[in-house]
């Protein structure tokens, strides 16, 4: 059974088809990437999976259970963690308190949740900034905080929306290593939206390519980068990977 399966998912906004009949699945323990040009419908798919929007048509199955139409907090409770492309830190709260909010989803007891949160902060290299308000963080750190908060909920599936954007190559490699480790050690399934092809190629076992709301290709990274439709619509003829 797939961890996540989309079957013919469509979503329109006032007549504009953001996603039309998209179908793909993510295997348990896999790392899959969702790529495509701006406006292709990647974030809309995330929002449908995360329960922000109900799809106009189609189904979203998580471990075989239909989750479309659930509220975001219910989707989270089911085991889906997500980050926001436009970061949304709890600006007035400390880094530790930010992550603790996520941890409280998995652990009801506050001191224990704090401890769990501190461990995740450490893992993401934010320990030095633990007691600072989130508003004082730089953008790369805010992206890391997004990841830490989502991870703290102990998800089975993690949706990452452009968390590498704006990172320097070394920072990008660091965070890639963290995801690899989480995937290897804890079997965390990851679906990521990313423009940074360096990260996509390093991480993804399978890639789904969206264009104008439709899935135009999917397969292994090698298959996808050779796909003529993908080259034409997104990567361009001259891209070398």
């Amino acid at each position: 059974m797939s961890r996540l399966e989309l079957r013919g998912v469509s979503k329109s906004f006032r007549g504009l088809k953001a996603v039309s009949a998209a179908s793909f699945d993510v295997a348990p323990g896999g790392i899959h990437a969702l790529i495509g040009p701006n406006g292709a419908g990647k974030t809309t798919i995330f929002n449908v999976v995360a329960g922000v929007y109900a799809p106009d048509a189609g189904e979203v199955l998580f471990d075989g259970r239909a989750i479309h139409g659930l509220r975001p907090d219910q989707v989270c409770a089911a085991g889906v963690g997500r980050t926001f492309q436009i970061v949304r830190p709890f600006a007035g709260l400390s880094v530790l308190d930010n992550v603790t909010v996520g941890a409280l989803q998995a652990i009801k007891d506050v001191p224990a949740a704090k401890k769990h949160a501190a461990g995740i902060i450490e893992k993401l290299g934010l320990s030095a900034k633990r007691d600072l308000p989130a508003s004082s963080l730089t953008l790369p750190d805010r992206k890391r905080l997004e990841v830490a908060r989502a991870l703290a909920t102990r998800p089975k599936l993690l949706l990452l929306d452009e968390v590498m954007a704006g990172l320097r190559p070394t920072e990008c490699d660091q965070i890639v290593a963290i995801f690899r480790e989480l995937n290897r050690a804890e079997g965390l399934t990851i679906l990521l939206i990313e423009h940074v092809m360096r990260a996509v190629m390093a991480l993804a076992q399978r890639i789904v390519v969206l264009h104008h709301g439709e899935v135009i290709a999917q397969g292994t990274p090698d298959e996808v980068v050779r796909d003529p439709a993908v080259l034409e619509s997104y990567l361009g003829e001259e891209t070398e990977v």
Partner: peptide, 9 residues
């Protein structure tokens, strides 16, 4: 929005 994404009703 972020609260809801972290499981807060």
């Amino acid at each position: 929005e972020a609260a809801a994404a972290l499981g807060v009703n």
